[in-house]
Each structure stands twice: as C-alpha cells, then as structure tokens.
Amino acid sequence: MIVRMWGKTDVGRHRAINEDCLLVDPELGLILVLDGMGGHRAGEVASRLAMETISSFWRKHAKNRSSAPRTFENYDPSFTYEANLLRQAAYEANRVVIEKSLERDDYVGMGSTVIGMVVTDYTVSMVNVGDSRMYLIRNGTIEQISKDHTLAEDQVERGIMSREEANDSQLKHILSSVIGVDSRVKIHVDELAAMPGDVFFLCTDGLTAVMTDEEILAEVLQNEPGPMLLDRFVDLANERGGPDNTTVAIMAVYEDTAGGAEHGVESGLPEPH
C-alpha cells in the first residue's frame, strides 16, 4: 500500500488574513487541518499554536514509545497507541492554547478546530474537535468520518431537531467543542482500515459552507487526486463567494504495484501559507 498526500490553504475573498492552518507531513504520515477563530489576529495565533503543539508532540512520541507521556488522559485500549497519542496531542494543544489566551487581552477566547489524521501500516487514525471535516470516499460513496461539534449536531443527537432542520439552523455555527477554551474539551476519535482506492478528504468550513457532500464526492470521482483537484476545490469555493478561508487536504491510497509489502509515502508540496 502506498499513500500520497497533498494540501492547500487559501485566504478566500472576504477575509484579510488566513486563520486556517495546514500541515502535510508525508514522513510522519500526518495531516493537520485547523480553523482558528477569535478577534484581531488571535485566530491565526490559536490555529498555528495548536498545529505546532500537536506536530511537535507527535514527532517526539510517535517513533519512540518509551518516551511516551507517562499519563494519558483516558487511554482507550480499543484504539491503537497512535490514536491515543493523537488524542493526547490534542489535549496538550488545548492546554497550551488556553494558557496563551490568558496572556493578552486580544487573545481572550481565541480557539481553533482541528482535524488530525495519521496513517500507520494499514490503519488510519483520526481525531477532531469542532466543525472541520474529514470524509472517506470509497467505492463511489462519501462518508463523514469526523463528528461535528456544533449545537445543531448536539440537538439532532438529543432528538430535538431533525437532520434537515439542523442543516439550516443557525446553531450549526455555534461550536460545542473547540481547542483552547475549556479544559473539558470533547475530542472525537476514530480508526479505519485503509484500502487501495480510498480517498481521505479533509477540509475546513470555508468549503463545506458552499459545497454539499454530494458535490465534494462528484469532484473527487471526476478528477484524479492531486494538486490540481485541490486548486479546483479552492476555485469553486471562491467562485461561490469565498466567504471564509478555505483549506483542503487529500490522502489517496494506492496499491503497491511493485508487489512488495513495503509501505511508502509520497507527497506534493503543500502551498506555503
């Protein structure tokens, strides 16, 4: 199995600054997509700080289990070590951003969403906080793997609102969990067996605000995964008004035609941001 990964982030048409953050690291098999929020430039600070905290935590512990943090918050044995590590990294980021937000008045209340995804052997582990999304496109269908931490989604789960109502509700813009605000942050974790042909698609709400799941699926099915496809998504978001920053990332899984059981990673360079 070989995976290739690409990412792109764009400021959009209406914002002066890009508060999204993106990391695509083929060496580590790690992708992070974050959407910062908060006044002035605080959103930018929050998403960047969360990204740096998670990636450095991952670098430090992923390859060296003996250096693993002695105390995991809620280590869950039904997930791999990698998934638990990614979740712990998100807890760390939460702590670091909260502390930073207390340093300056303009940082108060800043926060960030995060989607973190790692691929190890045949397993894809993911965590998410907030409303940035991860999809799996497999056998011509699209499935949302991330969980939206929004009040609208909470209402659906409680049976107070129908799925259709939730899609139109203002409550879908209110996040119920976010990195950097509350020490009791909710982190969603999931794990999947990856197969050749799979496309994992990650994005911020700059894209999902203007595109439906079916439209995303159609684009992925009609185009080869790669930098061109990412350009196309960003162009589409901008054509439809580009209300927000847009970040998209793709990981595509291929059969290793060399026949070996080796696991390889390749990548296009992410756009500088």
């Binding site: 959407d35 929020m37 908060g38 006044g39 207390l102 108060v108 209340g109 926060g111 409303d131 009040l151 909470d154 209402q155 409680r158 107070i160 409550l171 813009h173 209110i174 996040l175 119920s176 976010v178 605000v181 509350d182 009791r184 709400d205 927000d244």
Partner: peptide, 26 residues
C-alpha cells in the same frame, strides 16, 4: 476574562452556557 470575548461568525460556548442554551431550546 472568558466572558468578555467576541466573535464574528463561528461562536464557541463554554459548557455552562451550552447546557443553558440546550435546556432553553428544548
């Protein structure tokens, strides 16, 4: 400090405020 924050569009609620809002909606 947290109570004084402002946001443009996407909003974050702390847990207490969240529970209150959910209860009110319900």
């Amino acid at each position: 400090k947290k109570k004084g924050r402002k946001f443009r569009d996407t909003v974050i609620l702390d847990t207490e405020a969240q529970q209150e809002l959910l209860a009110k909606q319900a």
